Simulated assay, not measured.
Amino acid sequence: MVENTVTGYSVLQRALHWLMAALIFFNLIFSDGMEHWNRLMRRGEAITPDDISSANIHAYVGIAILLLCLIRLAVRLMQGAPDAPPQEPPLLKLAAKLAHWTLYALFVLMPVTGMAKYYFGNDTLGELHGGPLKILLWALIVLHVLGALVHQFYWKTNVLARMTRGV
């Protein structure tokens, strides 16, 4: 077996991570414009240009997240990623790997299902987008942050430094 020589994330990987985090939080926290547009559409009420602009911001940020995710995946495949620290128990290493790849899947599925609703009127995928996928995304974000804190303060590993300073 070839030993992984990657010990930290590149500047590009870290920039993509934090930019995506900011855009994801923006869309999760400031989804009111899209939700308002959706309510108006369901009720058959008039939609103003301001309503469309607010919904478009949410949609365009989602599209940016999708594109950044695809770039991030390509960079990860080319540059690799550091192994989990040895202090992490094997079962938690597996859980972390599953959580990370599920996050990547959500970074694709959320924009695709959102676009299916907004641009193509697919209500089923829209419900999936604003319901179970959104809940799963929030849950995994919380677990991701908690995992980083456990690494930092319990196992005292360099996981946070790898994604902040690249060490």
Rank of each mutant, 00 (worst) to 15 (best):
R43G: 10
R43H: 10
M34H: 07
Y154R: 12
G62K: 03
A95Y: 14
V159Y: 03
L109R: 01
L19A: 02
V108W: 12
H100C: 10
P85K: 08
A21E: 09
K97I: 11
K97P: 08
I52F: 13
G44W: 08
L94E: 14
M115F: 15
S10P: 05
T102K: 08
Y119C: 02
G8V: 10
F26Y: 15
Y119F: 13
G130H: 11
W138M: 03
L149Q: 09
L23F: 13
T48F: 02
Y9P: 08
I29N: 04
V6H: 13
A116N: 06
A148Q: 10
A22M: 12
R14T: 05
L23V: 10
F30K: 05
V145W: 02
L73H: 00
G44A: 07
R42L: 15
P86C: 00
A59C: 02
I47S: 14
L73W: 12
W155N: 08
W155H: 01
W138F: 02
Q87I: 11
S54L: 15
A74Y: 11
G62E: 12
Q152D: 14
T113D: 03
I71N: 11
L16D: 00
D123V: 06
P90E: 08
R72I: 07
Y118T: 13
C69N: 13
V145K: 05
A96V: 03
A105Y: 02
V167A: 15
S10D: 06
L143T: 02
N158Q: 12
M20E: 07
V75H: 09
R39D: 13
R76G: 12
L91S: 15
L125G: 04
D123L: 14
L92Y: 14
R14G: 00
L143Q: 00
M20A: 12
S31I: 06
Q152L: 15
A116M: 07
E3C: 10
R39G: 08
F26W: 14
Y9I: 08
N122K: 01
R43I: 06
A99G: 09
Y104M: 02
I135A: 11
N158P: 12
A22P: 05
L92S: 09
L92D: 03
F25H: 08
N56W: 10
M163W: 07
L73N: 09
H100F: 09
C69D: 04
N122V: 12
E127M: 00
A15V: 03
H151E: 09
K156I: 05
Q152H: 14
I63R: 01
L66F: 13
L133E: 11
F30V: 03
T102I: 04
P111A: 06
A99M: 06
A22H: 07
Y118P: 04
L125I: 01
L40A: 10
G8E: 01
Y60H: 11
A46T: 07
F30P: 04
L19W: 03
R42T: 11
L103K: 00
V167H: 15
S53L: 15
G126L: 09
V75M: 03
A84M: 10
I52K: 13
M20P: 07
A148N: 02
N4S: 06
L19P: 07
S10Q: 00
I135Y: 14
L103Y: 06
L149N: 05
A59G: 04
L19D: 02
F107W: 01
I141C: 07
R39C: 07
A96R: 13
L140P: 10
